[in-house]
Amino acid sequence: MVICLFASLAHADGLAEPKGPVILTISGAITQTNGPNVARFDREMLEALERRIITANTPWFDAKHDFEGPLAAAVLDAVGAQGSTMRVFALNDYASDVPVADVREFPVIFATHLDGEMMSVREKGPLFLIYPFDEFPALFNEVYFGRSVWQIARIEVIE
């Protein structure tokens, strides 16, 4: 009976287990996990976090589009991120270092939807890091374009 109680308390302190296919894995300097030294998210878990729509022009599309998804800061808060940098990896292992300060200063999102439709891998999904380019025009430059990773599969939080 005592063992069950301790197991229940340990689970209550950690991140919930994904019920569907894992689309994002976060490792590194994090305090909340649901696997061996990792936090795994399915789509439902990401959809439950604080969300935002960013309407913006980007260099990757010909017109202004609506990007919707969880705030990157909410994702970092969910895993108890303790680092200063996110190394964001795409499905093809392309990686970019994104300062955590970016997601604390600006409402950056991990877009899961483009114009109301779920983003497929073909459409730069399942996750696409999007800055609010139109809201903060100073972000519309090569530095932030390079940090805007699409087809995100995993993140390593670095101290």
Rank of each mutant, 00 (worst) to 15 (best):
T112N: 02
A48M: 05
Q151H: 11
A56D: 15
A101M: 03
V88Q: 00
E159T: 02
V103Q: 04
P107S: 06
R51A: 14
N92R: 02
V108P: 06
E159M: 11
P70I: 08
L139H: 13
A73Q: 12
Y94L: 01
I53H: 02
V121C: 02
Q151C: 07
F128P: 02
A39P: 05
V98Q: 04
V108M: 02
V103I: 12
L127M: 15
R104C: 00
L114T: 03
G116W: 08
A73C: 09
F110S: 08
I152Y: 10
L129P: 09
M45K: 01
V157K: 11
E50T: 14
V38D: 10
Y144D: 07
D102H: 03
M119F: 03
V98P: 04
S96N: 01
A78H: 08
F89S: 05
P107E: 03
V88F: 00
R87P: 03
A153I: 00
S96G: 07
S84T: 08
V75L: 13
P107Q: 07
W60D: 06
L127Y: 04
G146F: 03
Q82S: 05
D97R: 04
A111N: 09
E117Q: 14
V143A: 14
Y94C: 00
L114G: 03
Q151W: 03
F106H: 15
M45S: 07
G69C: 02
I130W: 02
R104Q: 15
H113I: 04
H65F: 10
A81C: 04
L71P: 04
D66S: 13
M118W: 12
H65Y: 06
E50V: 08
Y144H: 15
S120R: 10
D77G: 06
F106K: 10
A74G: 07
P132K: 06
E159W: 05
R147N: 09
D77N: 15
A81E: 02
Q82W: 00
A74I: 04
V157Q: 12
I54T: 10
V100P: 01
S96T: 07
V157D: 11
I109H: 00
D102M: 02
R122N: 06
D134T: 10
S96Y: 01
H113E: 15
L49R: 05
F128H: 12
A111F: 07
L71C: 08
F106V: 05
A63G: 11
R87F: 00
G69L: 07
S84E: 01
F136R: 12
F110M: 07
W60Y: 09
A39V: 05
D62R: 11
N92G: 01
D102Q: 01
H113T: 12
E68P: 03
N92D: 15
R51S: 15
Y144K: 13
V149F: 09
Q82V: 00
E159F: 02
D102Y: 02
R87G: 00
D102A: 01
T58V: 09
E123H: 07
R52S: 13
F110I: 05
L91M: 12
G80D: 09
R52E: 13
E68V: 02
A81N: 01
E50Q: 15
G80P: 07
V79T: 03
F145R: 12
V103T: 12
F89Q: 03
V108C: 05
V38H: 04
R52T: 11
A73R: 14
I130V: 14
D93T: 09
G69I: 11
A73E: 10
A153G: 15
R104K: 13
S84R: 04
E44W: 00
W60I: 10
I54R: 09
L49H: 06
D115H: 09
